[in-house]
Structures are given as C-alpha cells and as structure tokens.
Design a protein around this nucleic acid. Sequence first.
DNA 1: GCAAAAGTGTTGGCAATACACCCATGC
DNA 2: GCATGGGTGTATTGCCAACACTTTTGC
Lengths: 256, 256
Amino acid sequence: MKYEELDQFIKNSNYQYLPHLSVDCVVFGFHENQLKVLLMKMKHADKWGLPGGFVKPEESLETAAGRVLQERTGLDNIFLQQFHVFSDPDRSDTATKVDFLKNAGKAFLKDDWFLQRFLSVGFYALVDFSTVNPTPDPLSEACAWLEISEVKSLIFDHNHILNKALEVLRLQLNYQPIGYNLLPDKFTMPELQKLYETILNRPLDRRNFQRKILSYGILRQLKEKRKGVAHKAPYLYSFDLRKYQKALKEGLQDVW
Amino acid sequence: MKYEELDQFIKNSNYQYLPHLSVDCVVFGFHENQLKVLLMKMKHADKWGLPGGFVKPEESLETAAGRVLQERTGLDNIFLQQFHVFSDPDRSDTATKVDFLKNAGKAFLKDDWFLQRFLSVGFYALVDFSTVNPTPDPLSEACAWLEISEVKSLIFDHNHILNKALEVLRLQLNYQPIGYNLLPDKFTMPELQKLYETILNRPLDRRNFQRKILSYGILRQLKEKRKGVAHKAPYLYSFDLRKYQKALKEGLQDVW
DNA sequence: GCAAAAGTGTTGGCAATACACCCATGC
DNA sequence: GCATGGGTGTATTGCCAACACTTTTGC
C-alpha cells in the first residue's frame, strides 16, 4: 500500500465522512469445517483488527457497511446484519491512534479528525468463503481469514465486538435458518451439520439433526450425490430460497 | 415551557452534543391491562413523537438514553435495551424541521445544527407505569401515555421505530423473562398473564401459562392473596430476582 | 344460589432424544 | 474385508396443548 494513499485517506476523512461514527464488520466464512473471520493486519501497529470504515454524509449504515465489504471482499449483496453499537467513550484509546500516526511518520494535531472519539456500529456478515477475495484497505497492510478460536488480541475493543457478534449469531440460530450465505449453492447434509456444530461449538446427533433441519422445509434434496469422496457418497442439497426467505422473515418457531 | 428554554436549547446544541446522532426511546408501561407507550406532543407541530435526545461528547449511548429517560420519567436505573440504529438518510425530513423552527418564530441557517442529518439509536425501556412522572422536554409541550393500538401518525420515522421495538420485544419474549420491570413488586398470576397476552396481542390458556411460567423457576408464590377483589382471591407472586437475572443472562431455552 | 374468576389435575399426541442397523467406498 | 462415513428406522421420554372440575367470593 503506497504512502500517498494513506496520506490521502487521512487528509480527506474530515470532509468525506460523518464525524465520530464508524462501522466495523465481523465477516464470517466457513472453510474446511472451521468458522473463520476476516481480519486486517493494521499498518504501523502489530495488531489485527476487524474490517471497518466510515459513513458518508448521504449513506445509510447498511450502505456504508456494504461498500466497505465490497472493497474488502469483492462481493456485492453480502448478507449483513447490524447487531450492536459500541459507544463506550474509552473504546478506542487515543494512545493507540497517536502511535499509529507517529509510526506512520505523520504529524498530528490535537483535534485531528482521526483522533476524535468514535462510536462504532457493529455488523456481522455471512459469506461464501470460496468467493471472497480478501483485500487490505489504506490503513492495513494485509487481510486474511483466521480461525475463530485462534484469534488473539485485536486492536481497540474488536475482541469484544467479535464476541458479541458470535453471541448474536448463536442466538439467531434459534429462530432463523442459516447456511444459505455461508455455503456454496450445493452442499451435503454433513457439511451443513458441521456448520451448525462449528457455530455452536458442540457436536450434534447426525440423525436428529437431519430430521429437525428437514422439518423446517427449507431444503431440497437433489438427485445428485457428492462425487469423488471416500466412503458412501452423500446427497447434495440446496436451499429452497423462497421458503428460506420466508423462514428468515417469520422465524422458525415461537415459544409463546 | 418557556420560550427562552427552547431558544437556549437550540443555541447550545452544537457544542454540547455530538453531531448527527440522537437516541430515541420507546418506553413501555403496563396499566389497566393495556400496553402503553410514553409519547411527547411536539411543540409547533401537531404531532406526537418518541422521547429522545442527544449524546454528550463523553457519554456512552446507554448513559445518554438513561439521562434522557431520567428527565422524562423521574426514574433512575431504568431497564434499557438498545435495539436498532435508524440511519436512512431521509429518515428525518428537513421540511418538518424547517417548519418547526419557522413556527417557533426562529430564524434558521442552511447549516443549522438542528437541520443536519441525524442517525438515531433506538432504545426500548420497560418501566413500572405507576412510578413514572411524565415530564415534557424543551421541544415538547406535553407528555403522556398512549395505548399502543391507539398510536396514530408520529413525527419522522417514529412509527417505524415503535414497531421495530415491539417486534424485538415480542422476539425477546421467547428467550428472556419479562415482567420484573413492568409490574409492581407483588402481582398476581392473571396480571402477569395479561401482560404476556397484551404484548403478544393474543389470548393464552390460563393453566398452561401458569405451568410454563412457573417452570422457568423465576417466580415465588407468596403467602398473601390479593384482597378486596371480587371473586376468588388470587395469590400474589414476586420475582426471585437472582434467578430472574440468571435467566436474563443465560436465556430461557435453546432450540439447538 | 348463581355468576365470575381462580386454583388444580388429566390425557392424548407430537416432538426430541437416544440408539442400531444397513449401505457404499477406498485402501 | 475392514474401517469409515453416510443413509434410514424405531422406541422411549417428556413436553405441550386441549380440556373439566372444584373452590372462593360478591351480589
């Protein structure tokens, strides 16, 4: 990433974006039976952080988050869900930011746009791992998928944001279908089960899982089977998108 | 409300508060078997709206919402839950605000603080109706409880905010206990049931309701009964606060 | 004694759990 | 042919929904 780009970014921020406000995205992907999250290696700081960005004067938060993720993944129409605003006045400590500017060899003013207090709106995104093209932004030097349990200390309160996203995701599993955004078009029942097990971090019974997930009526069993695999070939499934959307809207089940 | 107060408010806003950002609160109360919401009659506009306010430079959103509600209800330590950020660029149309300033007999500048675009963080609050002392703010001339189904057209996107709050409340009923914040310390089983029925807008079976709610283990049956009522005297109950809090944290039940 | 509200109990059906057997494939 | 993973079936359990009878109180 070129010096001029970062320079440009910092210089233009204060009139390109709304002050005090950012969006941070927890992008979940599923690969080799692991739940992964997209992280950025920050420049001039030996830390990783969530992909994030700022909000333009005419954008909704959803548009802003979508734009940020389009830039970081190359994907349009990502499944995005706002889940919490992080507004602790001390959430992004100034020291870290001052260090960043210093290490970047930049002079800074006491009321630099970049140094102001930020509230951040957390979004989580579910994406098909295989279609993502991770791309760093002006503030970061690398961009990569990390396995959830291997994520160490992140910048600012990003660990907190990530944990909250996971918590919300697990909760939503109870009343929303999941998988359409995380899996390829065709997938097998064991793959879908692994996804659930990975998110819940707990094994599920094969047979009961199948019965339950089929009872939601959102799956279509295809005629084909997965080819070229060891052992018995599993059937391929795809989501019945209409019924899936309906389930998303109306919820899967109610207690009351 | 005196002219000077509104004048003062508008003049001071731009350095007292963060720009572009507001909080709006949907305050639910329960009275005479009805679900009520606290609304404000806006000055110089023949419309009602949600109690709201702005965020000071050193406040978290939760602190800001708590402060606003303390002023509007007289209560401290209100049960507050942030539920969504409303960020449509057109959510608060400028025309309405210009009208407001005109009707208030105020000159206004094109880049008036008050006329800028606002994102609003929605909070919902659950309060004990009987302890609230509704108090207008500088922008409103009255403050009153309205029955949910009798709420007409509100200012800006406040109907949308209210509906979203209701939706979230109904959803949370499925995995969180409710009632501690909405009912007096002692209450009867039929009263608690009416609360649930009112929120869900649907009748429930007496006997099944009792079994289910008791199975959560968050209620304590008291020795006393409600006195001075017609017909058979119902038992009084109170929440076991420790178990109630535990249920709030851990959730009532999981599908997976 | 009658109406209205509240306390308590029973039953049938469905759904979640736990578990077992058979089938296909690679080595 | 054996280990591994996948497809399918069943029996038991427990919970939920529907429903009935009894008790208390005011009039």
